[in-house]
Structures are given as structure tokens and as C-alpha cells.
């Protein structure tokens, strides 16, 4: 599906994969996440002196890589419905071993929620939130453990314009502040205009 494709995204850079449906944006993201196996080629992620060769990882290796190196924002929010908002945000911290203890994590999460105007929704469950609220939580979940790479697959595809703008603001600002490379798939020109770089997948 993807041939002769080369891409390097720097830390803190916002790169947008732009193109129509079926152009391979989501497949590329899945490949970077280790969710699909590539037939040939290489995917490398570097941070400081560490390096991960995603294409060489086995199943458990991919899981370990995703929990520590990666944040993912889906089009359909995909919060864990059986966990509260706070527990959803606590999950990546615990999985990536970046938890600083229950109370400290609680303070961190509360601070993040306050920043996005959802301080009072920590104990709510996803089903009790609006779409915009869910996606803001999903963005926080993807970035709370300060991953090297954040993948966002049509994060505004299911939102109205106002909520979409809020979510993109949040996603880009936090990715830049945490020095995470953001690879964002979209077919929205409005989103693409705000990227550091646009990769046209047509």
C-alpha cells in the first residue's frame, strides 16, 4: 500500500499526513504503532540516545514500545469505558512506569484536567462526557506520560468545528511542550494549515 515512502519527524514537530480516505494515512500510523506488520522497510524511533526499531519487535516488544514511547489519539475517542476519567489518565502512567505514586499522579492529572477545563470530571466515566470532552481526555491520555511520538488519527473527524479547534489547539500545544513528535492524519485543510509540515499522501 505504501511504497517508496520516507519520512523523518523531529521531536516537537507537528507533521500532518494529509490526503483523502484510502490514501494510507491510518495504515502508516498503524505501522508506526506496531499494530500492523510491514513487509519491508524500517521504522526507527529515537529519543536522546535510545532507539527503537519497530519493524524488528515481536508482539510483546511492540506492547512495551507502545506503552513507553507512544501516545495514540483515535478518531472515535476510545477511552476505556470501564475506567473513570482519572483512571484513564492514570493508565499510561502506570503502564509506562512513569507513575510517581497515587497522590502525585492524582495531582498531575488534576492539573491537566484543570488546564482543559475538566477539573470536576475526574471521577466521571466516558459515557457521561460529551464527544468534545472525551476527545480532550483522549489527547491528555496520549500525552500524559510524555511519549516520544504521538499518533493522532483523524482526531477531529467526529467533532464539530469549535470542539475540533479546541482539541487541535490542545494536541499541538502539548505535543510541542513535551517535545513529542506529532504525526497527525487528517483530510481537514483547516488542521493541515496549522502544522509544521504537511505530507501529502495523494
Amino acid at each position: 500500500m505504501l511504497e517508496g515512502f520516507n519520512l523523518t519527524v523531529a521531536a516537537g514537530e507537528v507533521a500532518v499526513l494529509w490526503g483523502p480516505s484510502g490514501s494510507g494515512k491510518s495504515t502508516l500510523l498503524a505501522a508506526v504503532a506496531g499494530l500492523v506488520t510491514i513487509d519491508s522497510g524500517e521504522i526507527e524511533i529515537r529519543r536522546d540516545d535510545a532507539i527503537v526499531r519497530v519493524h524488528e519487535l515481536d508482539d510483546d516488544g511492540c506492547a512495551s514500545y507502545r506503552r513507553s514511547w507512544l501516545g495514540y489519539v483515535f478518531q472515535f475517542f476510545n477511552l476505556v469505558p470501564t475506567l473513570s476519567v482519572e483512571e484513564n489518565l492514570r493508565l499510561p502512567l502506570q503502564l509506562s512506569s512513569r507513575s510517581a505514586g497515587f497522590e502525585q499522579d492524582h495531582q498531575t492529572i488534576l492539573s491537566l484536567l484543570t488546564d482543559v477545563g475538566l477539573a470536576d470530571r475526574g471521577q466521571a466515566y466516558p459515557a457521561q462526557l460529551s464527544g468534545g470532552e472525551q476527545q480532550r481526555i483522549a489527547v491528555l491520555r496520549a500525552l500524559v506520560h510524555q511519549p516520544a511520538v504521538v499518533l493522532a488519527d483523524e482526531p477531529t473527524g467526529n467533532l464539530d468545528q469549535t470542539n475540533a479547534d479546541n482539541v487541535i489547539d490542545l494536541l499541538m500545544s502539548r505535543a510541542r511542550s513535551t517535545r513529542s513528535a506529532l504525526l497527525l492524519a487528517t483530510h481537514s485543510e483547516r488542521v493541515a494549515e496549522r502544522a509544521d509540515r504537511v505530507i501529502d499522501m495523494q
Partner: peptide, 18 residues
């Protein structure tokens, strides 16, 4: 399927509380 958005839509499809 999650990444490509196929299958059931949104967290409503997860059953349980939602």
C-alpha cells in the same frame, strides 16, 4: 480496526456502562 475506525463506532460500542 480501532485505528482505521472500522467496526463499531465510539466507546458506546464497548458494552457495559456505556
Amino acid at each position: 480496526a480501532l485505528v482505521t475506525g472500522s467496526g463499531a463506532r465510539g466507546s458506546e460500542s464497548f458494552g457495559g456502562d456505556s
